[in-house]
Every structure is written in C-alpha cells, then in structure tokens.
Amino acid sequence: MSSYRTPELARSLISILKALNVDHVMLGKDELCCGSILLRLGLRSEALEVAQRTLDELARVQASTLVTHCPGCLRTFKLDYPELFDFKLSLEMVHSTQLILRCLDSKELSPVKIKAAYLDPCHLGRHLKVYDEPRKLLSLIPGLTIIEPPEKREASLCCGAGGGVKSCLEELSLTVAKELIEYFRLLGAEAVVTACPFCYYNLNEASRGALRIVDILQVVDASLRGVPVEKLG
C-alpha cells in the first residue's frame, strides 16, 4: 500500500529508520503483497500461494525482525497465516511504531505543534491489540496535543477502508470516512493522526481539506528532522 498509494509514508519510515540507525533492508521490487486483501475477500488458497512466496523472500534476506507500517500486513503475517495455514515465521514481527519506540533512545525531538485526535487503526488496535505504543510515541513529541475521543481503543471507529470495501464499494468507504471526519471535527480536533496507510489514504480522500489527516510516521519524521509536517515532501 505505502509504496504505491502513499509513498510519502514509505519515505518517512525509511528516513526515520536511517535517523535511528536501524540496520534494515527493503524487499524492494521483489516484495510481494502480503495477501491480506485476498484473505479478506475470501480467496484463501490464492493468499496461501502469495504468502509462500513472501516467506521464501523473507528467508532469503535473513532478517531478525519484520517491520511493517501497514497493520493489515502485520496482522496477516502475525495472526492470520499461522492460524489458517499453520505457518510459523521464526522472525519477530512488529509494527513500525513499536520498533521506533524501541530505537528512539534519547534522540532529540523538535516540537510539532498540532492539536490532533489519535485514531486507532482497526487492524492495529482491535486485531493486533497494539494500543499503547503509538500513544506512547506521540506523547514523546513536544508541542503535540493529543485528544482522546470517547470512542477509542477497543471501541474506536473505522475509517471505512477495510475488508476490501475500499476496492469493491468505494463510495461506501468514503461515506464512512466522512462520518468519521465529522465526528473528529465536532470533538475540536485540528487533525487526525493515524498509524495505517489505509486510514491515511481513505481519510485524506474523503476529507478534501475539511480536516488535516496525518500519519504518525510523518509526525515522528518531522520531529526528528525539525521540519513542519507539510514540508516533509
């Protein structure tokens, strides 16, 4: 998702990993879709085929940790494939926010002055139960004010892009996203921070400037580099 639809997020992740001196490799052009979309739409055996190829790729690069920013990919590797196909990946699998938090040490962080609401992405929160690390990470950024909406964590609202709906029923996705944006606007948020390329992409498309939508990677990248989010390029 990030490589094609939200390259700015992929760039931010790489820039952060470099700033934090994380030894990393990208699968690059050999990288394959995780197959999540196939699973969600009911194509199990096809997903298995794709998964097998990705596993081979991962074995080839001999990494100790698999990091993804897309919570959907992470869920697919970490929960779905082991459950459905009895796959056991020997490497550790983490979300970008978990890795960043671990490697941040005492890096100097510049202020990012936004009053934003954090949206728990469905795959990251409810499905993977990662609620705290993104919040912890955001709390370290000076100048950032985070609003906690009443419907948060287990009860957080959905951006409308999941389950293949973005692809199969685009208008439905956008309408769900618009309702969510209105909800955040009424809370008095100036922006929404999410931690998922699908939320980021869909909310941006639906918002059309009604509310600023940023990703946590952009906030961290901006803070590490000391530039405003909109200047990240």
Partner: peptide
C-alpha cells in the same frame, strides 16, 4: 476485484497492477 487483485499480484507483486519497478 478479488480475481483481478490475485492476477495483478502474480504479475506485478501488488494488487493494483502497478509496475514492480516502482516499489
């Protein structure tokens, strides 16, 4: 769409059929 995505993944590695090289 599901069928299309699978075909695209097999060909280009991504569901949208974007060129591999982009990644």
């Amino acid at each position: 769409k599901a069928t299309l995505f699978f075909d695209n993944i097999c060909l280009q590695g991504n569901p949208w059929g974007e060129p591999k090289a982009l990644r």
